[in-house]
Design a protein around this nucleic acid. Structure first.
Lengths: 252, 252
DNA sequence: TGAGATCTACTCGATGTGAGTACTACTCGA
DNA sequence: TCGAGTAGTACTCACATCGAGTAGATCTCA
């Protein structure tokens, strides 16, 4: 049987199927705190409980589905490189969750995505996004389905990727100060960093940041000189990496 | 509507669905070369072409599906900690591939897994596994569907994980010499390592290996003293990591 | 028995690291 | 307007780790 006649005789109903969804862990930093985008579920199961935004995959790639869901929940439009769009959002696949009992309705296999963005606006009232809101990750608990686990995995991934990729630049504006970049690390890792050493390391990693030649319009909120401005460089991996302070419990 | 009545009225046909499969990239080292397990497809599409082993997910977790597929193709039984079983195989999810056009039959979303194992036997003739075979990764090309891409992603993941996890110990027997461990790194990274420095680093990383007190029964094939034997330690992360020689093209 | 390979333990200089000091420039409130 | 306090940047120092190389002992194979 050749492939054409095979395809003609092929019946998809002969094979087991499941619903495929994407769930998005969208992270941003608001007032120095790492926050995640949640929605309150408007329908059963888990009615009224908080959950990660997500939905069924349509006739599109998984990446497109994740970007679409994110756009719908934030009220921003995907695409162009402008403010008020998702153009600068970094999106990557996290992993897939498919335990048979993770959803009481039916077999649902969910592909989780991780999204990183600079300070995003509050979701706009009166839109589909009205039911979405930003919550500090420490307060995001008791989520629907297995979303607590997904969020935990997402945070672990984000903390790891900060070490060896320029991911932190996805959380700040196109021009930023070293201090702002340090606050991203502090917010995601949940610990303060030595300002002098951080400064030295960031500037010594080839391709991490490059100077704009400009200087911030004003000093820090509570004093200090005007800082120099930088933009993201062309490195995809940081070498040497910015390792977080080693904690024994992460190793064993 | 409460959850019970909701579930009773719920119709899975109302939602889009897709077939969900697992594909397994099983890696082992044979005669110093990193090899991947392939199967020749016995049916359309891509009849006669090589592919990664895989199949539809049944009423089981994704991890269970991957282990089952691997067991079927190798002829080994999952479970117990003995030789000739998959007990020591390291299995982890890689990522999920779901482009709408990746399979000409229908929408198929495939969750790819990565498996690492010590030298596994040739698949047994006369079993389901007879159509499977080991191929050096350099020679695994022109695979069916998007399996070339999946294999490439798998190799990248494996090379990265060797740096900061004790993954290499999954490729050797329970007792091994430092030289054997070094050959694992050499095979996966595709480059020779400085024996003295490797020795020093492995022994200096807490929890990577621990001495058995024994010594290898004989020296190397081509001479040299009997090496001391070690077993895997309890570390889950290597600190400091064993970084591969930096190549500029990996960074930019 | 000799040639050659390997295991293991060194040394050396170069580089990266955390902790701390110092100086300057700025903001804010008294 | 001035002083206190904060932040940006640039140092130093001791220490850890790195790649490269040397060296001696021990083993296999021809």
């Amino acid at each position: 049987m050749d492939e054409a006649s095979f395809l003609a005789s092929y019946n998809p109903r002969d094979y087991p199927s499941a619903a495929v969804t994407v769930d998005v862990v969208a992270l941003t930093i608001r007032e120095g705190t790492l926050c995640v985008l949640l929605v309150e579920r408007g329908q059963a199961p888990h009615l009224g409980q908080n959950a990660l935004p997500g939905g069924f995959v349509r006739d599109e790639t998984l990446d497109e589905a994740a970007l679409r869901e994110l756009a719908e929940e934030t009220g921003l439009t995907p695409g162009a490189e402008q403010d008020e769009t998702l153009g600068r959002v970094h999106l990557e696949q996290l992993r897939t969750y498919g335990n048979p009992d993770r959803d009481p309705r039916m077999r649902i296999v969910s592909v989780a995505y991780l999204a990183f963005a600079p300070h995003l606006p509050e979701p706009v009232a009166g839109t589909d996004a009205a039911r979405a809101f930003w919550v500090p990750v420490d307060e995001a608990k008791d989520l629907a389905f297995d979303h607590d686990q997904i969020l935990a995995d997402a945070l672990e991934r984000a903390r790891d990727k900060l070490e060896y990729t320029p991911l932190a630049t996805a959380f700040v504006a196109t021009a930023f100060t070293i201090g702002e970049l340090r606050q991203v690390y502090a917010a995601v890792w949940g610990e303060e960093l030595h300002a002098g050493n951080f400064h030295r390391k960031v500037l010594s990693v080839p391709g991490f940041v490059e100077s704009t030649g400009e200087t911030a319009a004003r000093g820090g909120e509570r004093g200090g000189p005007k800082a120099r401005l930088y933009r993201a460089g062309d490195a995809r991996l940081l070498h040497p990496a910015l390792l977080r302070p080693t904690r024994e419990d992460r190793i064993r």
